[in-house]
Amino acid sequence: MHFYANPARFLGIARWLTLPLLIAGLALVSAALAWGLLVVPPDRLMGETVRILFVHVPAAWLGMGGWMTIAIASLVELVWRHPLAAIAARAAAVPGATFAAICLATGSIWGRPTWGTWWVWDGRLTSMLVLLFLYLGYIALAGAIARDGASSRILAIYGLVGAINVPIINRSVVWWNSLHQPPSITLGRSAIDGVFLAPLLVATLGFSLLFGGVVLARMRALLADAQAEARMRRRAAAPAREWG
């Protein structure tokens, strides 16, 4: 990990990984969604709306995965003080928030024809909404810290504390009575028929590659901004030193 924490080494790898990840992700997502729309049969209970799960489930995974990325990077930043860890955490916030919002929107669209309602205040939906608000708070705080030049430690602590919500989301359907069904996929076991599981896995892989490409692109943008600002500051300070 320390080997890749060097910004120059990281940029060398990120430069040739970003575009392939984005293209492979888009290709796999397109294939999985076409598969879900055109090939998969309707479900016995859910009917045609089962197809919505091919976007809803990966979005839920990545909404939670995005915050786990923030939490792990924040821990690395606090313990080892790697500047790249802080950049990785910030870069994961907007994609994580986007996927949390996609999860909530597609879940609501799925709920209307299936449950007869757009929204219920149960444990799963409410904790997912809390995750979206945590993301928005994180993005706002990161922006304020970047603008005012304050210490990023408070942001890293926020990222770590917010991770408490991820196991709550995951276990909410087990702990509380909910309209939401219990977990269909657990470690080593799946209650989903293979005809639905295969496109779901392809969609999850595709969205994950896309997420990786977007995080790399955002890390490169943050690094480039920091390098440009450092150069401009050095240039601005140089005549002052000569005259001083």
């Binding site: 197809r51 986007t98 969205f207 896309l210």
Partner: peptide
């Protein structure tokens, strides 16, 4: 129509993000 709207929302948001 619910399926198509869900796919459109997800595709649009993902493309805008990328």
């Amino acid at each position: 129509s619910f399926v198509l709207v869900a796919y459109a929302v997800a595709a649009l948001a993902t493309l805008v993000l990328a």
